[in-house]
Computed example of a mutant assay.
Amino acid sequence: MINMPRANHWDIFCTVVDNYGDIGVTWRLAKQIANEYSIPVNLWVDDLASFSHILPALNPFKKVQSFSGVNIIHWAEPLPIGFIAGDVIVEAFACELPEQVKNQLLHLHQTDPKSVPIWLNLEYLSAEDWVEGCHGLPSLQANGLKKYFYFPGFTAKTGGLICEQNLFAQRDAWQADTANKLQLFNELNLKGIKAEDTVISIFSYETQALATLCELWQQGAKKVHALIPKGRSLHSLTHLLPCEIEALVPGQKIVHGNLTLHILPMTNQQSFDRLLWSCDINIVRGEDSFMRAQWAAKPFIWHIYPQEDDYHLVKLEAFLKIYCDNLAPEIAENWSKLNLAFNQAQQSAVDLHWQNLNPVSLPLLQHVKQWPINAINDADLATRLVQFVKNS
């Protein structure tokens, strides 16, 4: 094999799982590394069709294209272009590197060990205590190569959280003027929403807990607008829909008492952030939306991805513990029980805890505003990741 020249870039590999979660995280990370640290990034993605839902300008049939300073390459077997190892290779969420890449790494290891890129496995986000002890640990592979496990997290001893450097300033400027959210709703063809109405975004998995909340809202004293994209959330609300989910169109609204369901169009990541900034409450799922809901500084419910033996509830409780640390005990207890009940589809409990929790109470609003400042821990994930590479 010919010794390939080294290139000063990073390669990030991502397999698309659950349509938007994994690619949402890796796309944000790739953009931030390229734009804030001027590091060339190749983002290898196996499913460009799903990716194009959050990057509408992406051509799902084009093998190589560039956006926001990132080269996006269709990850197929064999790879559509020749691979030249750069400074860093990132496996997003334990995806398996292509054999072509592993063979090149092994060749470099055998001929010039000092030229082997730093190989990282970017793990899923967790607030569990054990993450601190595992973050940054090397793992010697059977072929002699070394791979590091990089764990995002909420403490200074973890890999940090994805957050662009100017995000909070942009959010504050947006939320300072009510006209911004009303203009956004108009651009999304969401009609009939007034500034004083309660607006809730919904991006959850299937759960009867969502149907329970909708029944509560339609009988409530105040108008509620629920903004929902076509997808998994609506499978729990078929009894409220006038037609099959496939027949719904963006901008369509369905009225039941004081509840209006609005069908959202798919948006890019910037628009999704602004949507979360504009709503009073956000119901989110997965990892990417979960973090963006926190940065939105609004109350939220996290519908975590279900796992075997209910292990996802362990992860949820670990997060609730740190998130509620500075909340008044009665608010913390009710907010935690609401999130747990939603994830366990305990319909009567969801009803009870929603009514007991005033989402716009002053202590809660103060908490959701302060939490992002505390959670970022002086350094975001991209910053810590770049520093980790330098130190390695």
Score class of each variant (00 low, 15 high):
Asn8Phe: 10
Thr15Cys: 15
Trp27Val: 05
Leu29Trp: 02
Gln32Trp: 04
Tyr37Ser: 03
Ile39Trp: 00
Asn42Arg: 10
Ala49Lys: 11
Ile54Leu: 07
Ile54Arg: 02
Leu55Glu: 09
Asn59Val: 07
Asn59Pro: 01
Asn59Trp: 07
Lys62Asp: 01
Lys63Ala: 14
Val64Thr: 11
Leu79Gln: 12
Pro80Phe: 05
Phe93Gly: 11
His107Cys: 02
His109Leu: 15
Lys114Gly: 13
Trp130Pro: 09
Glu132Val: 11
Asn143Trp: 10
Leu145Asn: 13
Leu145Pro: 14
Tyr150His: 08
Gly160His: 10
Asp177Phe: 03
Leu184Ala: 06
Phe185Glu: 09
Leu190Thr: 11
Glu196Asn: 15
Ile200Val: 15
Ser201Lys: 03
Glu206Tyr: 15
Gln208Ile: 02
Ala211Gln: 09
Cys214Tyr: 09
Leu216Phe: 06
Leu216Glu: 12
Ala226Asn: 08
Leu240Ile: 08
Ile245Glu: 06
Gln252Cys: 07
Lys253Pro: 01
Val255Lys: 12
His256Met: 05
Gly257Pro: 02
Leu264Ser: 01
Thr267Glu: 09
Gln269Ala: 01
Gln270Glu: 03
Trp277Glu: 04
Val284Tyr: 07
Ser289Glu: 09
Ala297Ile: 06
Phe300Thr: 12
Glu308Leu: 14
Leu320Lys: 06
Glu330Asn: 10
Ser336Ala: 14
Lys337Ile: 00
Ala341Arg: 04
Gln344Leu: 06
Gln346Lys: 11
Ala349Gln: 15
Pro359Tyr: 07
Leu364Tyr: 00
His367Met: 02
Ile373Arg: 09
Ala375His: 06
Ala382Tyr: 06
Arg384Asn: 10
Arg384Trp: 00
Gln387Tyr: 09
